[in-house]
Amino acid sequence: MTPMDELPNRLATTPAHDGRRWLVGAAIGAAVLIATYLIAVWTVGGQVVENAALRGADQVRPDELDTANQALGDITVWSLAIAAVLVAAVGLLRRRLDLAIAGVGVIVLGQLITQTLKRFVLPRPPLVEVVGDYTQNSFPSGHTTIAMTVLFAARIVVPYRWRGVTMLFALTWAIGIGAYTVTAKWHRFSDTLGGDAVALVCGCLAAWWLSRRGAITPYRGRPHRARVVLAVLVGVGAVGSLALGALLLWGIPLARGTDLAIANEAQDYTAYLGAHSLAAGASGVTALVFWALWHRLEVAGRPRPQGDALEAPNARAS
């Protein structure tokens, strides 16, 4: 059995109060962020491939472009504030101030890290000659970070029994945002992957803080089969999207011996489709990694006063 095969078993046998799994998750996110930046932004090949995908996005149908711009435009300071308030409200309704702080902290920390990196820390060097306004730095993607941190914050604060429903709707939206950034030419694929990585770091750090407080406990209730089916479907779709994106972006051009540095409508559009597919798949895989780290774990609500009505034995898991 390889070390990667042993990882799920190790995580499953790690005590719920042990924060190592969250630190490992945060380290993975940081490693992906650094590797993506070095490979995609600081190499000629990375810039050539992503510039071709941006040129290919010029061929997107007007209705698809309008949909992408609308979805991205709906993410504003006000909508982000509303999302943070809703996350905090769920934590407070569960009578856990620490849960509210952790959920809001994921969203706020995600933007602090992303905007600081993009504006002040991670420049985009002019390694290749480009045609069009593709030289500005946009790594990592703020919109992708917002979508994924809101997803992770909701994942942290909602009761265990609502976890599957929350993931179904929020995950669909978050994956769509990642792909739309490429469609609307607001970001490159690497920007989206960078945003996913930042969100994973923030989500794992918040979970680590909760675990250090003893707030995370094992879930003792029955398994939810529908949730397992959902996770499998999302996993198959995400991995398939990554495989298709890699084939379109690197496999086909390599087999044909084409040079993506030379503008060509057909190959540029193929590059765009590959980047779009990779963006969606990366967001899906990142979400599943965070979901897997929470397998059979929960943050229980505060116990009710003894004068309240008697609860069912598994009410603590709600």
Rank of each mutant, 00 (worst) to 15 (best):
T67D: 14
T67F: 15
A68S: 10
Q70S: 13
A71Q: 13
A71D: 10
G73V: 10
D74P: 00
I75A: 04
I75C: 04
T76G: 03
T76P: 06
V77R: 01
W78R: 00
A81K: 01
I82P: 02
I82R: 10
A83V: 03
A84F: 00
A84D: 02
A84L: 08
V85A: 15
L86F: 13
A88T: 08
V90H: 12
G91V: 02
L92W: 14
R94E: 11
R96K: 11
R96F: 02
L97V: 14
D98Q: 14
A100C: 07
I101R: 10
A102E: 07
V104Q: 07
V108H: 02
V108F: 10
L109F: 03
G110A: 02
G110V: 06
Q111N: 14
T114M: 07
T116C: 04
T116A: 12
K118G: 02
R119Y: 14
F120E: 13
V121A: 13
P123I: 11
R124P: 10
R124W: 08
R124H: 11
P126M: 05
P126F: 08
V131K: 05
G132L: 05
D133W: 03
Y134Q: 13
T135R: 14
T135F: 10
Q136P: 10
N137L: 01
S138D: 03
S138R: 06
F139M: 06
P140Y: 07
G142T: 08
G142H: 08
